[in-house]
Simulated assay, not measured.
Amino acid sequence: GEISAAVAAGVLSLEDAVRLACARGGLMQKLAGGGVMASVAAPAGEVRERIEGLAGVWVAAVNAPESVVLAGESDAVAGVVEELTAEGARCRWLPVSHAFHTPLMDPVLDDFAAAIGELSFAPAQIPLVSTVSGELAGADFGSAAYWVEHARRPVLFADAVEVARELGVRVWAEVGPQPALSAVMPEREGEVVTAFMRRDRDQQTGVLTGLARLHVHGVGVDWVKLVPSAGRVEVPTYAFQRRRYWAAGSVGSSAGSLSGAG
Rank of each mutant, 00 (worst) to 15 (best):
V18N: 10
V81T: 00
F112V: 04
L156G: 02
E73Q: 12
E166M: 10
A239V: 12
V171R: 14
A144W: 11
V11W: 04
R242K: 11
I3A: 10
G79R: 08
Y238N: 07
V96H: 02
A17Q: 03
S97C: 03
A78H: 05
G45H: 11
S133A: 07
V221I: 15
S97N: 09
P65S: 11
M37Y: 02
R243S: 10
F141P: 06
A8G: 03
A145M: 04
Y146S: 03
M185S: 07
C22E: 13
V132T: 08
D16G: 08
L94Y: 04
V193E: 00
V59W: 09
S182A: 15
G34I: 07
D202N: 15
P103Y: 11
P107E: 07
E135D: 15
D110T: 14
S67K: 08
P186V: 13
V235G: 02
A61D: 03
V47W: 03
W147A: 13
C22V: 15
E2T: 13
V193N: 03
S182W: 06
H215K: 05
L156W: 14
V207S: 04
V108P: 06
L84H: 01
Y245N: 07
G35N: 09
G206F: 08
L54S: 06
G168A: 04
A38M: 05
E118D: 15
E73V: 04
G256R: 09
R198Q: 11
A122Q: 15
S39E: 12
V68P: 03
V57T: 05
G117K: 08
V163E: 09
P65Q: 11
E174M: 01
S254Y: 11
S39A: 12
T237A: 12
A60Q: 06
A60R: 00
V7T: 08
A164I: 04
A122R: 15
L208D: 12
A164W: 06
E83M: 06
S13P: 02
R19C: 06
R165G: 08
A137T: 07
A5T: 13
V132W: 12
G220F: 13
P179H: 08
E73W: 00
C22K: 13
R242P: 00
P43A: 07
R243N: 10
R243W: 10
A21H: 10
V77L: 03
E174L: 05
L31V: 11
R24H: 10
R50N: 00
V81F: 04
P154A: 11
W93T: 01
E189P: 04
A21F: 06
V77D: 11
P177E: 12
V81D: 02
E135R: 15
G138S: 01
V224S: 15
L12R: 00
R48H: 07
K225C: 13
P177D: 06
R165K: 02
V192R: 05
E49Q: 14
R188W: 01
R213C: 00
S74M: 07
L104C: 05
V219E: 00
F240Y: 07
G25K: 10
V175K: 02
R242D: 07
K225I: 14
Y146C: 05
L181V: 15
K30L: 13
G206S: 06
W246K: 11
I3V: 15
P179A: 04
H217A: 13
M185Y: 08
R188K: 14
G190T: 01
